[in-house]
Simulated assay, not measured.
Amino acid sequence: MNRLSMGPQLRTTSVLVVHLLLMHCNRGQSKLIGPSQPIVATVGDDIILPCHLEPAVDVAAKTLEWTRSDLDPRFVFVWRAAQDVLNIKNPAYIGRSSLFTDELKQGNISLKLTKVKPADQGRYRCYIPDNNEDSLVELVVGAATSPVTSL
């Protein structure tokens, strides 16, 4: 009799475990994607460091971070509560770093960096803390060269 009474209970538990596993797997369906090659820029350029979720997920209400571990403070750009957080941003990037806020609903977290400087060269981290997911982007900065004229 004990075996019969445990049958339905075991089936209910099994269904619950499978349901929980499916929920866990579905949460991590989107993946943060960055470029596979370094981004190359010339001093003075305006450039985009690509980073997006695939498939697209609305991240406008999430916290988003762009950082460089070799900087202090390390924050190049922070989006929190639907706005740019300036008080923790590295001073070198104030007024030069931005997101395409109208594209956050499509999962585009790409960083726009204006007036690139040699000191901007390095490895950038695009990070979504809620998802504990990141993507790295390498920026290589070269000096602009003038054409050489000879007689």
Rank of each mutant, 00 (worst) to 15 (best):
L86K: 12
I88N: 02
F75K: 01
V76C: 04
R68W: 00
S69D: 11
W79C: 02
S69K: 15
K89M: 11
A61E: 07
V85P: 01
K89H: 04
L64R: 08
V76M: 03
L86P: 02
R74G: 11
V85S: 07
A60G: 09
L86F: 03
I88P: 00
T67Q: 08
R80K: 14
T67C: 06
F77I: 09
Q83E: 13
A81R: 14
D84I: 03
K62T: 13
D72E: 13
Q83M: 12
D84N: 13
A60D: 11
S69A: 14
V78C: 06
W66M: 04
D84P: 02
R80V: 05
E65Y: 05
I88L: 05
I88K: 03
K89A: 08
D70N: 13
L64T: 09
E65R: 13
W79N: 02
S69L: 11
R68Y: 01
P73L: 03
R80D: 11
F75H: 11
F77P: 05
L71E: 08
I88V: 15
L71Y: 04
N87P: 01
T67H: 02
W66A: 05
A81S: 14
R68D: 00
R74E: 15
D70E: 11
T67M: 07
R74L: 09
K62R: 12
T63R: 15
A61L: 07
V85R: 08
V78D: 03
L71T: 03
F75G: 01
L86R: 11
L86H: 07
F75N: 10
E65G: 04
A60V: 10
P73A: 06
W79M: 02
V85I: 15
I88D: 01
T63I: 10
A61V: 09
Q83H: 14
L71I: 04
Q83V: 05
D70F: 00
D84V: 04
P73C: 06
P73W: 03
W66Q: 04
A61M: 07
F75S: 09
W66S: 05
V76I: 13
D72S: 14
K89T: 15
L86W: 01
I88C: 01
L71K: 07
R74S: 14
F75I: 07
E65Q: 14
R68A: 06
P73G: 07
D84K: 10
N87Y: 08
R74A: 13
F77M: 14
R74C: 09
